[in-house]
Amino acid sequence: MSTQSSVVTSATELRAYAPTADLTVSPPPSRIERARPRTGTSPDNLRTEPGPIRFIIIALAVTFLSVFVVLPLVVVFASAFSKGIGAYLTALGEPEALAAIKLTLLVAAISVTLNLVFGIIAAWAIAKFDFTGKTFLITLIDLPFSVSPVISGLVFVLLFGAQGFFGTWLQANDIHILFAVPGIALATIFVTFPFVARALIPLMQEQGTQEEEAAISLGASGLQTFFRVTLPNIKWGLLYGVLLCNARAMGEFGAVSVVSGHIRGETNTMPLLVEILYNEYQFVASFAIASLLAMLALITLVVKTVLERRLDEGQEPSDH
């Protein structure tokens, strides 16, 4: 934001070289000094560890990951296929398994859609407006992350259970929330709420409101501004949030377990069914369902990497 000019072409410009004269005159800041680039630590300077130590550190990291991440994943697939592909497919074709897959997809669809809308609204409010209680709202968004999922489920039991806050009224009107799809969806929405909002808030804060202001000053309506300017700018971040939200929604165990009631073929989601089958020593069936969840995780991982690359590209260095 310097008001100074670098080419001396006129007497007017000469003035630019000196600070404002008041009673005292301080020397003008040295341009050369300010222009000198800081010598940062280059990656080369960091490679000071001797070869063996480097090798040990890398080997430790790789071993740790192999034992704690890759090995379990391999075990899941190995167990699922231990009796051959036929048994695997039969296990997945069981009505109970199909019901669980359908329920999981339904709950994920409901909770992702709703959290998409709520997430955008919350992120929009936080990133683009100033209001009292904003910090509180940001903290509140993180609440589902910091609360144990079991507690998240219990909250709904306390609210909608037979002895709960709305229990009597719900029973009188024959509305089923607990031990039914609505309860599972509510618990999942609660647990997965932060993902979309958290992905969008920093992005929207960084982008500011100038493009929206420009759109409005060019005559765009609020909706036009949202769909033509805001949404395209946040689309990769939004997809990123939706992806993580979806992965968690399908994989959620604790909160769902509390509200589901474990009614076979009706309120068991995939993670719940995995546990039940395992407890009944149906290992192949149990790991077959688990392998689906593991595949979901792998796909999520790949898409996430692609999206992260897109996000980085979207934030190209601009000179302000």
Partner: peptide, 11 residues
């Protein structure tokens, strides 16, 4: 309206 930081639509 012309903004200091241009506010061009980046996409």
């Amino acid at each position: 309206f012309v903004f200091q930081h241009y506010a061009l639509f980046r996409h």
